[in-house]
Each structure stands twice: as C-alpha cells, then as structure tokens.
Amino acid sequence: MVAQAEISGLHATLLKERGRLLRFLAARGVGHEAEDVFHDLWRKIAVMPERSIADPVSYIFRAAENHMRDLRRATISREKRQFDWHGMADVPEDAPAGERVLIAREQLTHVQAALAGLGSRVDYVFRRYRLDGVGQAEIASELGMSLSSVEKDLQKAYRTLAELRIKLNTE
C-alpha cells in the first residue's frame, strides 16, 4: 500500500469518489470487472504528468468514460476480425488500402454535404464543438448566440449525422 501522504490529488479524488464511480461503471456496462477497471484507472492516473486540474472529479469521470470507450472499441475490432475471417464483412479489414481510402473519401463527401445542407452556422457550430473541442458555452459567447440556440444547432447536426450513418450502412 502507498502511504497516505504519497497519494496524489487525483488518486485521493479517485478514492473519495469510489462509490459514485463504481456506480457509473456498472451503469456503463461493467459487471464483475468493476474492480479491475478501477485499478486500470488508478494506473492510468499514476502515469499522468502532474499538472493542475480544474475539476478533478469530472476529470476522473471523463477518464472512466474514455476507458469504457477504449474497451468497447477493442471488443468491436476483435469481433470484426472474427467476422472478416469468416468472410462475411462488407469491407474486410484486409481490403486493399486503396479501396478503404475510397470508401472513407466517399463518406467524407456525404458528411460534408449533410452538414452543409444544414446551413453554414450549424456546420460551423458542429465543427467548432466536435473538431476543435470547444464547449457549448464558449461557442455561444464567441458567436453571440444563446446557449439553447447552440444546443439546437448541435442537435440538428447530430440528428442528421445519425440518419446519414443509417442510410450509408443500409445502402
């Protein structure tokens, strides 16, 4: 065990928020491996550079969310490899690189067109939010818009992209 004095701020937060975090992890689909995931987070935090974090509680929840996304991606790509091996995937992972680039380019054209179709402001707000990583409140003040208008613009973009993805997958 690490002596109490050596426990860094984030680790202290992790311990303090353990109950809340385990409840979040359970809701996020972690079953009996909750303790393992908790220890993975502990280790991840240990290798992070020391710097001041404005909101340590939110920081550890973000780390937990990202960790769950990583786990899911790993599961999906494992399943996908298995699927490819059976020769059933539409675009096998070992498809020629050129073919994959072609598909990606085509999807990019569709995404760009779908966003452009919503008007330049919605397009801009979505890119600022999702590609530049700027929060809704900051975008609202940058553009002199209300927070709820920014949220509505984002909702339009998200809805359109969800519909587009379904369409592309069923074509």
Partner: peptide, 28 residues
C-alpha cells in the same frame, strides 16, 4: 430512446460536461 441517447452523447462531448450522475441515472 435513441433520440435521448444521442442527446447524452452530444452533451458528454462537451469538455465542460459535468452531469456524470445524471448520465448514470439515465443509463441505469
């Protein structure tokens, strides 16, 4: 359900998102 889920995914993408307990309660 998918509309509500999309809203959560959208809100979580905000670097200032703080409502982790709200997300927990929605998922549970």
């Amino acid at each position: 359900l998918s509309n509500a889920a999309r809203l959560w995914a959208m809100r979580v993408a905000d670097p200032d998102f703080r409502d982790w307990d709200g997300l927990t309660r929605w998922l549970e």
